[in-house]
Design a protein around this nucleic acid. Structure first.
Length: 798
RNA sequence: GCGGAUGUGGCGGAAUUGGUAGACGCGCUGGUCUUAGGAACCAGUUCAUUUCGAGUGCAGGUUCAAUUCCUGUCAUCCGCACCA
C-alpha cells in the first residue's frame, strides 16, 4: 500500500464527519465512558504542539474504549471568554465576539486535522448566551444559598491588565498572564465562599483516582492546619487572640506580634505612646508590593508597641507586643504568640530585637537556631508539661486551655475565598441589580441570560470600574423586587466561571430548559478520565470541584466529585530545551508538521517522545522514526502470506498484551516501541496473513487512525476500523517457548544458554556446563547455586 | 525554607515484588539497489581493549546478585512560599 498521507487523512476525516462516526446518544444497553480533555482557550496564536499531546492520549483511550464496546462520550468546546481576546480586540479595533469567532474557526480546523474522535455535535462555547445563561444561573444559586457575597477588601490588582486577580492567579507577586506588577488595592468585590468547602475538597480526594502530585498540590494549596486559638490578656484591658499550631510551646512565648493591619492598633490609639511610628510603619508595609514583601522575607522589621503589653497566660509574665509585616492579617487572627526558640521566623526577629529566647522543647541547640522538630524532643521549662513528648503536650495544654477558658482548638486554612469580580468587558455579566431600597437583588431566572451588551469602547478603566459602567442605558434598570430604579452590577465573572461546569453541559449541550437534563447527567456523569495540565491543579480543578459539590448539595447532580480519574501530561519544550515562545522563536506549529508528515505521524511521535507525564523536548529529527514506522506498516499489505508463522502469531499476542496494558497506564511510548519491534519481526519473517494484518490494524488504530482505516478498507473488512472490535489476546499464546538464561559465576555474566521455558535447575546447569560457560569455575569449590526460573543461574565458587 | 520529582550511550528514552543494563527510535558507520540519494532495504553501533575488564551523578553499605534497597553527598527541574 502506498502511504499517501495527505489523501488518506483527508478522505477519512471527511468520512468520519459525513457518517457521524463519533456522535453518541444515551444508550443504556452499553456501559458508558466519559473521556475528557481540557477545552482550550482559542487564542490568536492557534494550536500549539502541546495541545495534541494531551488530546491524542485521551483520544487513544476513547478510541480503545469505543472498540471495546463502550458508549464513549468524548467532547470538545471552547473556553472563549478572557483577556487576551479582549486585549487583541482593543488593539485591532475588532469586536471580541468576532475575534473569538475567527479563533474558534482556526482551532476547529486544526483540531479536525488531527483526527481526534470528538463528538462535534456537542461542541460548546462559553461565550454563547445559551451557554452562559447557565453559568449565570449557577451564580444565582450560589448567591441564593449565601455562598456569594460582596466585600470591601484589599485585592490583587494587575497594573497592566487593569483587573482584579484571584490569589491563584498571582505568581511570584506578578500577574500570571502578563507578568506585570500586582499591587494591593481596596475594592468592593464579589466573593465565593470556597472556604466553606475546604474540608470536603481535601477529604474527598481520598475517593478519587488522581495522580499523587495533583492531590498534593491541591492539599498544599488548601493548607489545612490544626492548632488552637489562645487569648492573651493585655494591659489595655481587652484580650488579644492568636492562632497557633504549637500550643505546646506556650511557656516559651516571650513576646507577641500583630499584623500592621490589625484593628487593635486603632482601638489602642489613645494608649499608644508611639502611635505615629506604628502608622508610618503600616504605611511603609502597605507600599511594598507583593514582590518586595517576598524578596525581603529574610529581613525582619517591626515596631514595639509603647504603652500596651500582654501577659503570657501560663507563665503570668508580662511580655511585649510588636507590630511587624511578617504577620499576615489574612491568616489566623492576624496576631501571633512568638516562640523564638521553636520557630525560625520568631527566632530571627528575637535575635534582631534582642528578645529572650526560652527553650521549652529539648533536643536542639537554640544558641544557633530555632528547634522546630515536632517528632523528637521533650518538654522542658514548661511546668506541668515537662517530660512530655510534643504531641502529648499539645493534647494536654489544649485541654488545659479549654478548661480554663483561655483557648479553643481551631483548624485553619491557607485557602481564601474566591475573588469572583473582574472589571473588564469580555465575560459573563453578573446577574444582580443594586436597589437603594432592597439592596442586591438577583434578576429573575426567567430573564436569563443577561446578555452582555454591545459597547462602543471596551477599554479597561484606570478607576477600576468595568467598561460596562459607562453604559447608562444598560446599567440603569428597575428593581425586580420593588420596581424602583436600580443599577446593574457592572463587574463580570472571571474566566474560570465558564470552565467550572462545562463537563456537565456536554452531557446535554442543547438543552434550553436546564443546564442539562437529569437523565443525561445521571447517565454520563461522572467523568471517567480527565487529563489536563498541571497548572490547573490549584485553579480549575479546585473551582470546578467546588461548583460540583455545590450543585450536588442542591440536587442538580448526583456525584459530588466530578472526575473519577485525573492525569496530567508533561510539557513539550522547543528543540533548544526551552519553553516554546514566540520571543525565543522555537515554537513548533502543528500545521507545518501535519503538512510535512501527516497527523498520524504527529500523533505517533508525540506519544513516542517520552514518558507522557514528563517534560519532553521536541526533535525535528526523531519525528522521522514515527513516519518510517507508519510507512513500514503500510508496506505490510504487500507482504501478505497464506499463513502467519507460529512465531509471529505469538509475537502478536505478546505485543497486544503489552499495548493493552500500557495504554491503561499511559505508557504510550513503550506501547509504540512494542509495535515497532513487532513490525521488525514481521519484516524479518517475510510477511503475515490478512487476518493478522487486520489484527495489527485494529491494535494500531487508536494511535494512527487514518492509515488504519485505509488499511482496513484495503484488506476488505467492513465498516470503520474505528468501530471494529478491539482485538483480544490469548494468554497461552503470549508465553514464549524458549528463553535465554543468563549464566553467572559469582554474579558476573559468563554467557547465556537457550532453554525450553520451564526447564529445571539441573537441566540448565547441565547445559551451562556442557556449553563451557562455567569454564572459569573449573577446579574451584562450588559454595552455592542460585537458580531463578527462566531467568538466571548463578554459581558461587571459592 | 517547605513540598514534589529527576540524574542511564553522541541524543530521546527502555528495564525497578533486586535477577542478562541500554528495548524502541534518532544519529552515526558499512553494505545492497540506484544516474543520484538527504529514498528504501540489510548489518553494526555503551566505553575501553590484544586479552582480562569497566559501566546507570558521586562516595559508601546490604546481597550470590543493585539502575532497582539503605546511609551520606552533589547537581538540575517544577510547585508553594513570612500561612504562625
Amino acid at each position: 500500500m502506498r502511504y499517501d498521507f495527505k489523501q488518506i487523512e483527508e478522505k477519512w476525516q471527511n468520512k468520519w464527519e459525513s457518517e457521524k462516526a463519533f456522535e453518541v446518544k444515551i444508550d443504556k444497553s452499553k456501559p458508558k465512558y466519559y473521556a475528557l480533555v481540557e477545552f482550550p482557550y482559542p487564542s490568536g496564536a492557534g494550536l500549539h504542539v502541546g495541545h495534541p499531546r494531551s488530546y491524542t492520549a485521551v483520544d487513544i483511550i476513547a478510541r480503545k474504549r469505543r472498540m471495546q464496546g463502550y458508549n464513549v462520550l468524548f467532547p470538545m468546546g471552547w473556553d472563549a471568554f478572557g483577556l487576551p481576546t479582549e486585549n487583541y480586540a482593543i488593539k485591532h479595533k475588532i469586536h471580541p465576539r468576532i475575534v473569538t469567532k475567527q479563533n474558534i474557526a482556526r482551532f476547529t480546523s486544526q483540531l479536525k486535522a488531527l483526527g481526534l474522535s470528538f463528538d462535534w455535535s456537542r461542541e460548546i462555547d462559553t461565550t454563547d448566551p445559551s451557554y452562559y445563561k447557565w453559568t449565570q444561573w449557577i451564580f444565582l444559586q450560589l448567591y441564593k444559598h449565601g455562598l456569594a457575597y460582596k466585600k470591601e477588601m484589599a485585592v490583587n490588582w494587575c497594573t497592566s491588565c487593569k483587573v482584579v486577580l484571584a490569589n491563584e492567579e498571582v505568581v511570584n507577586g506578578s500577574c500570571e498572564r502578563c507578568h506585570s506588577e500586582v499591587v494591593r488595592k481596596v475594592k468592593s468585590q464579589w466573593m465565593l465562599k470556597i472556604t466553606e468547602y475546604a474540608d470536603r475538597l481535601i477529604d474527598d480526594l481520598e475517593t478519587v483516582d488522581y495522580i499523587e502530585r495533583v492531590k498534593l498540590a491541591e492539599i498544599n494549596w488548601i493548607g489545612r492546619s490544626y492548632g488552637a486559638e489562645v487569648d492573651f490578656a493585655t494591659s489595655a484591658g481587652d484580650k488579644l487572640r492568636v492562632y497557633t499550631t504549637r500550643p505546646d510551646t506556650l511557656f516559651g512565648s516571650t513576646y507577641m506580634v500583630i499584623s500592621p493591619e490589625h484593628p487593635f492598633i486603632e482601638e489602642w490609639k489613645e494608649k499608644l505612646n508611639n502611635y505615629n511610628d506604628i502608622i508610618s510603619y503600616r504605611e511603609e508595609a502597605a507600599k511594598k508590593s507583593e514582590f518586595e514583601r517576598t524578596e525581603l522575607a529574610k529581613d525582619k522589621t517591626g515596631v514595639k508597641l509603647d504603652g500596651v503589653s500582654a501577659v503570657n497566660p501560663v507563665t503570668g509574665k508580662e511580655i511585649p507586643i510588636f507590630v511587624s509585616d511578617y504577620v499576615l492579617i489574612t491568616y489566623g487572627t492576624g496576631a501571633i504568640m512568638a516562640v523564638p526558640a521553636h520557630d525560625t521566623r520568631d527566632y530571627e526577629f528575637a535575635k534582631k530585637f534582642d528578645l529572650p529566647i526560652v527553650e521549652v522543647v529539648s533536643g536542639g541547640d537554640i544558641t544557633n537556631e530555632a528547634y522546630t522538630d515536632i517528632e523528637n524532643g521533650t518538654m522542658v521549662n514548661s511546668d506541668f508539661l515537662n517530660g512530655l513528648s510534643v504531641n502529648d503536650a499539645k493534647k494536654k495544654i489544649t485541654e488545659y486551655l479549654e478548661e480554663k477558658g483561655l483557648g479553643t482548638p481551631k483548624t485553619n486554612y491557607k485557602l481564601r475565598d474566591w475573588v469572583f469580580s473582574r472589571q473588564r468587558y469580555w465575560g459573563e455579566p453578573v446577574p444582580l441589580v443594586n436597589c437603594d431600597k432592597c439592596g442586591w437583588v438577583p434578576i429573575p431566572e426567567s430573564e436569563l441570560p443577561l446578555m452582555l451588551p454591545d459597547v462602543e469602547s471596551y477599554e479597561p478603566t484606570d478607576t477600576g470600574e468595568s467598561p460596562l459602567a459607562n453604559m447608562a442605558e444598560w446599567v440603569n434598570t428597575t428593581c425586580p423586587c420593588c420596581g424602583g430604579s436600580a443599577k446593574r452590577e457592572t463587574d463580570i465573572m472571571p474566566q474560570w466561571a465558564g470552565s467550572s461546569w462545562y463537563f456537565l453541559r456536554y452531557c446535554d449541550p442543547h438543552n434550553d430548559k436546564e443546564l442539562a437534563s437529569k437523565e443525561a447527567l445521571d447517565y454520563w456523569m461522572p467523568v471517567d478520565w480527565y487529563n489536563g495540565g498541571m497548572e490547573h491543579a490549584t485553579l480549575h480543578m479546585l473551582y470546578s470541584r467546588f461548583w460540583s459539590k455545590f450543585l450536588y448539595d442542591i440536587n442538580v447532580i448526583n456525584y459530588s466529585e466530578p472526575y473519577l480519574k485525573r492525569t496530567s501530561q508533561g510539557m513539550i519544550l522547543g528543540e533548544d530545551s526551552e519553553k516554546m515562545s514566540k520571543s525565543r522563536g522555537n515554537v513548533v506549529n502543528p500545521d507545518d508538521i501535519i503538512d510535512e508528515y501527516g497527523s498520524d505521524t504527529l500523533r505517533l511521535y508525540e506519544m513516542f517522545i517520552g514518558d507522557f507525564e514528563k517534560t519532553a523536548t521536541w526533535s525535528s529529527q526523531s519525528i522521522k522514526g514515527a513516519k518510517r514506522f507508519l510507512e513500514r506498516f503500510a508496506g505490510l499489505s504487500d507482504m501478505l502470506l497464506e499463513k502467519t508463522s507460529p512465531e509471529i502469531e505469538k509475537a502478536f499476542h505478546r505485543t497486544l498484551k503489552k499495548v493493552t496494558g500500557d495504554i491503561e497506564e499511559m505508557k504510550f511510548n513503550t506501547a509504540i516501541a512494542a509495535m515497532m519491534a513487532l513490525t521488525n519481526d514481521i519484516y524479518a519473517e517475510g510477511g503475515l496473513d490478512r487476518e493478522y494484518l487486520g489484527f495489527f490494524t485494529r491494535m494500531l488504530a487508536p494511535f494512527a487512525p487514518h492509515i488504519c482505516e485505509e488499511m482496513w478498507e484495503k484488506l476488505g473488512f467492513e465498516g470503520f476500523v474505528s468501530h471494529a472490535k478491539y482485538p483480544e489476546y490469548i494468554e497461552e499464546l503470549t508465553k514464549v517457548s524458549e528463553v535465554d538464561i543468563a549464566v553467572q559465576v559469582n554474579g558476573k555474566l559468563k554467557g547465556v544458554v537457550k532453554m525450553a521455558t520451564g526447564s529445571s535447575e539441573e537441566e540448565v546447569y547441565a547445559e551451562a556446563e556442557r556449553s563451557g560457560k562455567l569454564a572459569v569455575a573449573e577446579g574451584k569449590t562450588i559454595v552455592k547455586r542460585i537458580y531463578i526460573q527462566d531467568k538466571i543461574i548463578n554459581i558461587v565458587v571459592k
